[in-house]
């Protein structure tokens, strides 16, 4: 039962990534693409942690930790690019 709930959570997360990709493709402005990238990393990180719980391995959490710490750098760089600071 717990495994089934985790699988459903992962499937819902994957559907969320598809919606964020729709905004990434459609977005007329650069800011909408930056927001879509941020939402994608925000969904993918708990998906990695949930998969680590599902597979029963502690080592999968380290990858989620790397994304959690470094994901805001891409968005910050996009923002600095947009206001001509890079």
């Amino acid at each position: 039962m717990a495994n089934l709930l985790l699988e459903l959570a992962l499937a819902i997360g994957a559907a969320g990534t598809l919606l964020a990709v729709v905004r990434l493709v459609k977005g007329p402005r650069a800011a909408s693409r930056a927001v879509a990238l941020d939402v994608l990393t925000l969904i993918t990180m708990p998906m990695m942690a949930a998969y680590g719980l599902y597979a029963g391995r502690q080592i999968y959490l380290d990858v989620a930790l790397v994304y959690g710490i470094l994901s805001f750098l891409g968005v910050t760089a996009l923002a600095r690019y947009a206001d001509r600071g890079v």
């Binding site: 990534t17 990434l24 650069a30 990238l37 993918t44 380290d62 990858v63 994304y67 891409g74 996009l78």
Partner: peptide, 24 residues
Amino acid sequence: LAATVFAGVVSLAISFLFLRLAAP
């Protein structure tokens, strides 16, 4: 700029697929 963001998304999704294939 949009192409760069798309490349970042490819990297993110591929990283999740690597984790799914048991290669941390």
